[in-house]
């Protein structure tokens, strides 16, 4: 038995060409989901195979790669993917957002503004924003073809009728370049405004569902809303307990079983950079009162 050998960045060249062609069409048709022949990757479907294939197809020896999951470089899946590219591409890796040229992410857009030299690659589980309203691909494809998006507006409006708000907190649908309704991946809606008119190229890879889509730089990305119920980005009522940031997305840390909570930045690089600059938060776990009703 011969020990298997693998190509630069794991994928064979034919697969890379196929993915590269899909990426170019995705950029040419912003927000449209290009089908591609996703390969079996040495990690499970649903664990970032789409993002990994996109990253593998664009990555070169001069790149500096950053991988985050939930905003953090140190979550196990982020480490696992980073190590995969270190091993298969020998590429330089970094946790610094500003130094990275390619950033692969799951569930977050980091706080630092993206630059023109950067590419952000999203891992996407379900790329179809209409999927939970209409499970059939043949139907959703027709709806996109005709730009027939009434269904999703009805869903959002039903939320308002039931809850008084649009009850979508993450994977909040957007309209790209005033044409295609797109799923931003399960990022919190807090991050949606960062996608609009962004300087960097944003690429989205869904491995199991075999779709690639893109937002070119300087492209309008409008979160769906209504005139009387405009899109409201999520705001935290707290500051980061470590760096005191008031503008970042916060993780809730449960510190005991008596209701104590504290909030810290989800973007670990942002938080650490601020702490290095001398910003200090309360650093104390303070009780958080869950609002109750009888």
């Amino acid at each position: 038995m011969n020990a298997p050998t693998y190509n630069f960045a794991y994928l064979d060249e034919q697969t890379k060409r196929m993915i590269r062609r899909a990426i170019l069409k995705a950029i040419a048709i912003p927000g449209y989901q290009v089908p591609f022949a996703s390969r079996e990757m040495p990690m499970p479907y649903g664990w970032g195979t789409g993002g990994v294939q996109v990253t593998a197809a664009i990555l070169g020896p001069d790149d500096r790669l950053k991988v985050i999951d939930q905003g953090s470089d140190d979550t196990t899946n982020a480490i696992s993917i980073r190590k995969f590219f270190q091993k298969t591409a020998g590429v330089a890796v970094t946790t610094s957002t500003v130094n990275a040229t390619v950033i692969q992410t799951r569930h977050r857009i980091h706080e630092a503004q993206l630059g023109a030299h950067q590419v952000l690659v999203y891992q996407v589980p379900i790329p179809e924003p209409l999927r939970f309203l209409e499970p059939r691909e043949t139907e959703t494809r027709r709806m996109h073809a005709l730009a027939e998006y009434g269904l999703i507006h009805v869903k959002l409006y039903e939320d308002i009728a039931r809850f008084g708000h649009i009850a979508t907190a993450y994977a909040y649908p957007v309209k790209v370049n005033a044409r295609y309704v797109m799923d931003p991946s399960p990022t919190p809606k807090f991050d949606n405004p960062k996608m609009d008119n962004c300087e960097a190229l944003q690429l989205f890879g869904a491995g199991r569902e075999k779709r690639i889509y893109a937002i070119p730089p300087y492209t309008t990305v409008q979160s769906l809303d209504f005139e009387d119920y405009p899109f409201e980005p999520y705001k935290h009522k707290a500051c980061c307990a470590l760096c005191n940031a008031a503008d970042s997305y916060l993780d809730e840390i449960v510190t005991d079983d008596k209701g104590s909570r504290m909030f810290v930045c989800s973007d670990t690089d942002y938080c650490e950079t601020r702490q290095a600059q001398g910003h200090r938060g309360s650093e104390n776990a303070s009780p958080f009162a869950e609002s109750r009703h009888a």
């Binding site: 499970p44 479907y45 649903g46 664990w47 195979t49 999951d69 939930q70 905003g71 979550t75 899946n77 799951r106 569930h107 977050r108 589980p125 809850f163 008084g164 708000h165 009850a167 907190a169 993450y170 994977a171 399960p186 990022t187 919190p188 809606k189 807090f190 199991r208 999520y234 935290h236 997305y249 916060l250 993780d251 809730e252 989800s266 869950e290 609002s291």
Partner: peptide, 25 residues
């Protein structure tokens, strides 16, 4: 199996977003 088991991965960012909305409601 990949997609069912991916629920083991951290989801605390989107969960936090849901939690915030639920508390508000």
């Amino acid at each position: 199996t990949g997609f069912v088991e991916h629920l083991k991965l951290p989801h605390y960012v989107d969960f936090q977003s849901e939690l915030g909305l639920l508390r508000k409601l």
